[in-house]
Design a protein around this nucleic acid. Structure first.
Lengths: 328, 328
DNA sequence: CACGATACTGTCAGCGCTGACAGAACAAAA
DNA sequence: TTTTGTTCTGTCAGCGCTGACAGTATCGTG
């Protein structure tokens, strides 16, 4: 049933019906109430597609997850999922709907497709993957976008994220304080976020003496991470202190360590990153660097809506927090 | 830039341009190629909103997650997330986009809103929550919907899910085989899926003699589950065999058990449900009843698209599988 | 009573696209 | 040459809704 029909039943013009349903002030109280009641009674709802076309505003925000190197990851990664949940809440609270797009970047135009489709009023990018330049190019001309990830000097991207350098430092300092001397960073430093985490980790270690450091470029999915860590341990002496680029990697590493009879934290101290929901429920409970996804999600939404409203906003880096549990 | 403008540049009529871009056969090869090239060059993309309004087809499927009793759960629940990831893949593969809606059912019309909005071509409901009747009412008149959950005799809902009764049986049998005698089911049997799992569990136990059985109506979120299990153990003698209604509950329970110095599986055998990604990475690794989310997601999408195409399809129950790891 | 102000309601164009229909151009057949 | 068929292209209405503008009714004021 369309608005025309509803208007006919109510005995008013279409536009009066439209006004009544959208709480326009220039419609008589009684008329409005009558029309609203009729709409209710007949189960009438505005066609959002038509409304969007006419108003040039969809009320929908696109949440885009680019899957660069890690095709399998992302949508099953607990951290992204947590963020997505937070976004769903934050958007709903502000009256927006959520359009989810899981993109495997092919060619340089993967983002433009979403934008020019006219389906969304704005875009929240979850993670930069290996697409920094592509994103940057779009960011220079398209304002209605915010990104979860690492801030870069001179970039046009508005980003929200934790200060990954500090996060890496916090972890290194904690490991050094525990007396670890052979440290390892588990993760692929090609992703901007991980690069920063490693930078902080590396810097803090460089200040200490008599400490060695390796990077094991491990992938993000559980099985890959486990297999790669297993292989690494088979070929190399075990480190005594680990910073994993994510909690998922940390959990896989702990399993691999256990498989080799190494105790956590006695033989190897392990620190994760993210503080996903399950981090407190592993055994030993995972010590980790916390990123507040709920706060981050709200921030992303706030900044995006501000940009859409034409305001000028800047990137935000939240402070990460070391959560000490049992693994380090 | 709109189609009108593109057509002008190409020196053809709008509808020829439209036809060229949608690969309509009745446009000359050369014309099509020229227009496609121009579109590429100018970064033109069809406005999907307008196209949807005109064609009365959006190319979007709504994935709706009703949050009945468990408001916090769902979008952070690893099982649902896994399913969502699978759906995102399956839909993308078939050329559909995904509209994510996280609904707290208020009043009986929460589903109608999504349907009548005209934003989606069909709906995939993830989980029935406590909304069986509301869903059933919609299902009688609205065909373009499929549901992840429990099948019910005489229902109009097309459901995809695992055979939860069998799953419960598998778990009970395994626990009995291990010699467990004081069994517990952890979960709230108000949700249809959990009710079935309990039914299978209960039935299998009833056949054995000298075995006691309790139900602890534990919630789905990690913290709640942990707290409630903790409280239960403080007030009651510990069971020696547990079936948790989900892996998340099982993990919380294992932590609570460890907190009381109870060993898994020596003192208490624990079986989870779902086989989430992390299940193999707890310690001890979680024995669980596996639901294949990727297959399930593909099935949901296939059935929905078949229904949209007007075909007649039936509900599907997949067989669950007992995955024996270390916890039982 | 005339006049303007106030309060509401209706008319109509058009958001950007698609497809039924009609028309044009050209080749082959009569 | 005309006719018929084939192949392509253009015209036009309209998907369901909104809002600028114009119109009508009612009321208060001089």
């Amino acid at each position: 049933m369309g608005l025309v029909e509803l208007a006919k039943i109510a005995g008013v013009s279409v536009s009066t019906a439209s006004r009544a349903l959208s709480n326009h002030p220039r419609v008589a109280r009684g008329t409005r109430e009558r029309i609203v009641a009729l709409a209710q009674e007949h189960g009438f709802r505005l066609n959002q597609t038509a409304s969007a076309l006419r108003k040039q505003r969809t009320g929908v925000i696109g949440v885009v997850v680019p899957l660069g190197h890690e095709v399998d990851q992302a949508l099953s990664d607990p951290f992204f999922m947590g963020l997505l949940g937070g976004l769903a809440d934050a958007l709903t609270k502000r009256g927006y709907d959520l359009f989810l797009s899981r993109v495997v970047p092919q060619g340089p135009r993967w983002l433009d497709d979403v934008i020019a489709s006219g389906r969304v009023d704005g875009i929240i990018l979850i993670g930069q993957s290996d697409q920094l330049e592509a994103i940057e190019r779009v960011a220079t001309s398209y304002e209605r976008m915010v990104v979860w990830g690492a801030a870069r000097l001179g970039s046009n991207q508005i980003t929200v994220g934790t200060d990954n350098v500090t996060g890496g430092e916090l972890a290194a300092q904690h490991l050094l304080r525990r007396g670890c001397r052979r440290l390892a960073f588990l993760g692929n430093p090609e992703a901007p976020e991980f690069a920063d985490r490693y930078t902080g980790f590396h810097t803090a270690i460089a200040a200490a003496s008599g400490v060695t450091e390796t990077v094991v470029p491990i992938h993000l999915t559980m099985e890959d991470a486990y297999r790669e860590m297993e292989a690494y341990l088979a070929a190399n002496p075990a480190p005594d202190g680990i910073l994993a680029a994510s909690d998922v990697i940390a959990m896989s590493a702990m399993r691999a360590l256990a498989g080799r009879g190494l105790r956590v934290p006695e033989d190897v101290a392990v620190i994760g990153y993210d503080d996903i929901l399950l981090a407190g429920y592993t055994s030993p409970a995972l010590t980790t660097i916390r990123q507040d996804v709920v706060y981050g999600a709200n921030l992303l939404v706030d900044l995006l809506l501000a940009r859409i409203a034409g305001q000028n906003v800047g990137s935000v880096a939240m402070l990460p927090e070391l959560i000490v549990r049992d693994s380090a």
